[in-house]
Measured scan of single mutants.
Amino acid sequence: TFEVERIVRKKIVHGNTSYLVKWKNYSSKDNTWETEDDIRTKYGDLVDDFEK
């Protein structure tokens, strides 16, 4: 199971928000862009903290 360590960046393309996710126990080269809906479902607190 993958676990988010932190959110690195945010991008908005054509009105759709995605977050660059750093995965726990993986290197930064393994970071992936994930949709806001996918990340918010399980890691809403991390998204809220990133947006502060």
Rank of each mutant, 00 (worst) to 15 (best):
I7P: 00
Y43D: 04
N25M: 06
S18V: 15
D38H: 11
F50L: 03
K22A: 07
R6D: 09
K11C: 15
R40Y: 06
I39K: 00
S28F: 11
G15P: 02
E3G: 06
T35G: 06
E36W: 06
N25R: 06
D38V: 12
T35F: 09
T1I: 14
D45E: 12
H14N: 15
D38M: 13
D38L: 12
E34M: 15
Y19K: 00
W23H: 03
D37S: 13
D49C: 09
V21G: 00
V47A: 07
G44M: 10
V21M: 02
K11T: 07
F2V: 11
V47P: 02
S27E: 13
K22I: 05
N25K: 07
N31D: 09
V4W: 02
T1Y: 13
V47G: 01
W23K: 02
D45L: 10
S18H: 15
D48L: 10
S28A: 10
G15F: 03
E3D: 08
L20D: 01
W33A: 02
S27K: 10
I7G: 00
I7K: 00
T41D: 12
Y43M: 04
S18K: 12
Y19R: 00
T41M: 13
D37F: 12
L20V: 01
E34K: 05
D37R: 11
T32L: 02
D45S: 11
V47W: 08
D30L: 14
T32C: 03
D49G: 06
K29C: 14
R40I: 09
R40P: 01
Y26N: 10
E3C: 10
F50C: 03
K10G: 02
R6E: 09
T1D: 13
F2Y: 13
T17Q: 03
K11S: 07
I39T: 04
V4D: 01
T1E: 13
K10C: 09
R40T: 06
D37E: 13
E5A: 04
E34N: 03
V13T: 09
Y43V: 06
R40G: 04
E51I: 06
F2T: 12
N25Q: 05
D45M: 09
R40W: 05
V21C: 03
R6M: 15
Y43T: 03
W23I: 02
W33M: 01
Y43F: 11
I7D: 01
I7A: 00
E51D: 06
K10Y: 04
L46A: 06
D30S: 12
S28K: 09
K22V: 07
S28V: 09
Y19N: 00
K52H: 09
G44C: 05
V13D: 09
Y26R: 15
S27L: 10
T35H: 10
G44P: 15
W33D: 00
W23A: 01
S28P: 10
K42E: 08
K24F: 08
G44V: 06
K22Q: 11
T41G: 11
F2G: 14
K10V: 07
R40D: 03
G44R: 11
I39W: 00
K52M: 12
N16Y: 11
K52A: 11
D49A: 14
D38C: 15
E34R: 06
N31W: 12
K42F: 12
D37H: 13
V8I: 14
R6S: 12
Y19V: 00
I39M: 15
N25T: 08
N25P: 06
H14F: 10
F2L: 15
E36T: 03
K42D: 09
K52T: 09
V8W: 03
W23E: 02
L46H: 05
K24V: 08
Y26A: 13
E3S: 05
K52V: 07
L46N: 02
D30G: 10
D30R: 11
E34C: 15
D45G: 10
L46F: 07
I7L: 07
H14S: 11
L46Y: 05
W23P: 00
K10S: 07
L46Q: 04
R40V: 08
D49F: 10
Y19I: 02
D45A: 12
K29F: 10
T32M: 02
I12D: 05
V4F: 05
I39G: 01
D49H: 10
Y43P: 01
R9C: 15
E51C: 04
E51Y: 05
N16R: 13
D45P: 11
R9N: 12
D45Y: 14
N31G: 05
E3F: 05
T17F: 04
V13P: 01
V13C: 14
E5L: 06
H14W: 08
T41Y: 11
V47R: 04
Y19T: 00
K10I: 06
R6C: 15
D45I: 09
R40A: 06
K29T: 10
K52Q: 11
K11M: 10
F50V: 02
T1Q: 14
E36Q: 06
K52R: 13
E5V: 04
Y26I: 12
S27R: 06
L46E: 04
N31T: 09
I12S: 08
V47S: 02
I12F: 06
F50Q: 02
R40N: 06
K42M: 11
N31M: 14
L46W: 07
T17I: 13
E5M: 03
D38T: 12
G15D: 05
S27I: 08
V13R: 10
K10T: 04
R40K: 10
N25D: 12
W33T: 01
V8E: 06
K10E: 00
D38Y: 14
D30N: 14
D49T: 09
R40C: 05
E36K: 05
D48Q: 07
R9I: 06
S28R: 05
D37A: 14
D37N: 12
I7Y: 00
E34S: 04
N16S: 11
I39N: 02
W33V: 01
E51G: 03
D38E: 12
V21A: 01
L46R: 03
T35Q: 09
D30M: 14
F2N: 12
E5S: 03
T17V: 14
K42W: 10
G15M: 03
Y19A: 01
W33L: 01
N16L: 14
N31Y: 15
Y43C: 07
I12E: 10
K29Y: 11
D37V: 11
D45W: 13
D38F: 15
D48M: 09
K11H: 06
L46S: 03
T17N: 05
N25G: 15
F50S: 03
E3P: 05
V21Y: 00
T41R: 13
E3N: 04
K29H: 10
R9E: 11
T1M: 14
T41I: 13
I39L: 15
Y19C: 02
W33N: 00
N25I: 07
T35S: 13
V13G: 04
V47M: 08
N25Y: 10
E51K: 05
D48S: 10
N31K: 05
H14I: 05
S28E: 15
T1G: 14
T41L: 14
S27D: 15
R9Q: 11
W33K: 00
D38A: 13
V21W: 00
T35K: 12
Y19W: 03
Y26C: 15
Y43I: 04
E5T: 02
E34G: 02
T35C: 09
N16T: 14
F50W: 11
D48W: 06
K10M: 05
K22E: 07
H14R: 11
S18W: 15
Y19M: 02
V4E: 02
Y26T: 14
T41W: 10
F50D: 01
F2K: 15
I7H: 00
F2W: 14
